[in-house]
């Protein structure tokens, strides 16, 4: 497995558990845990920014890791 391309910052106070990020993540990095999203497979992240773009609650920030 290659190294992760980004670090995900999740604001649990903002997340309402709508599941949009989990569904649209192409590499299934995220998972729902009691109506709050959590990072299940951080190493799989390809920094596509889909979760940050689609989150309606401003709860996810994707910090790209510069190589």
């Amino acid at each position: 497995m290659s190294s992760p391309k980004a670090k995900l910052e999740i604001n649990e106070r903002y997340c309402k558990g709508c599941n949009i990020c989990v569904e649209f993540c192409p590499t299934k990095v995220l998972e729902m845990d009691l109506f709050v999203v959590k990072v299940a497979k951080p190493e799989a992240c390809i920094a596509c920014m889909q979760c940050e773009l689609r989150c309606p609650d401003f709860a996810i920030k994707v910090h790209k890791i510069e190589e």
Partner: peptide, 17 residues
Amino acid sequence: KLPHIWCPGCGHGIVMK
């Protein structure tokens, strides 16, 4: 002001972004 009042999954947050 955040978190906003919109329901889970409401698209208004996406439009605001």
